[in-house]
Design a binder for these strands. Structure first.
Lengths: 129, 129
DNA sequence: CGGAATCCTCTTCGATACTG
DNA sequence: CAGTATCGAAGAGGATTCCG
């Protein structure tokens, strides 16, 4: 079954959680490519709101680090496929750990933030007098 | 035995590796506090080249997330201690995984970078003609 | 001693428009 | 289709100075 819509929640915890892989879109790209090699425009569609510039920069960085391999098929219409390398697969446990941590402890972290912010809002109001 | 000099290699891989915990100094602070609670100035000395502003921001963020607890002992001279909470300790496996990954695969990643850069330096020179 | 205030630079991300 | 070029906004991190 082929998915044609974005597959990542816009409020996905990857921006909130304290464990990060690469930069903003890196972990999501790796997760996509872990299933199967994929062409540029497919990655773009699946990710949702990422600009071509940023996606290209992300893929270039992944390629430079040896995590993904790029293969160009001449056209027209031409297509460029990206796939995870063996080295790239070594990052999957790290992503799994990050997801697991978020599942287990993100709620506690958000509660702590709320308490902290509430406490310091009270202090700030008190400081005004 | 008390250490009075910085304990982190200035070229520590934590800035190069693709797995990050929090921001620049977060993982190192957590590693320090994992051994024992510590006062502000001790953390500062152990970390080495971190400014007061950035260390304070890092500790505030950790405190807000519920990862460290702050306890103030009035003076003079006053002292403020920071210690890991139970929630904070849940991040230790993530740090261990990051360190383990770097130990196992960082060399391969750096080799890939070198090949990539060499390859693209050749291409760039060729493109000039 | 443990910060806070201010100023600065560098990088990251996104929006937009254009191209082989 | 798979990018590149340019611009601008925002935040992270550091240097410096001052404070209770």
């Amino acid at each position: 079954m082929t998915e044609h819509a974005a597959r990542f929640d816009p409020v996905c915890p990857s921006g909130i959680a304290p464990i990060h892989i690469g930069d903003k879109w890196t972990a999501m790209v790796i997760c996509l490519l872990a299933e199967e090699p994929m062409r540029y425009s497919t990655i773009r569609t699946q990710l949702g709101p990422v600009t071509a510039k940023v996606l290209t920069a992300t893929l270039r960085d992944l390629e430079r680090n040896g995590f993904v391999a790029r293969s160009e098929h001449p056209g027209p219409p031409r297509s460029v496929h990206y796939g995870l390398t063996e080295l790239g697969r070594t990052l999957l446990p790290a992503i799994a750990l990050a997801v697991g941590w978020a599942h287990d402890h993100l709620g506690a972290m958000l509660d702590a933030q709320e308490s902290y912010d509430r406490e310091h809002a009270r202090r700030d109001r008190a400081d005004l007098r």
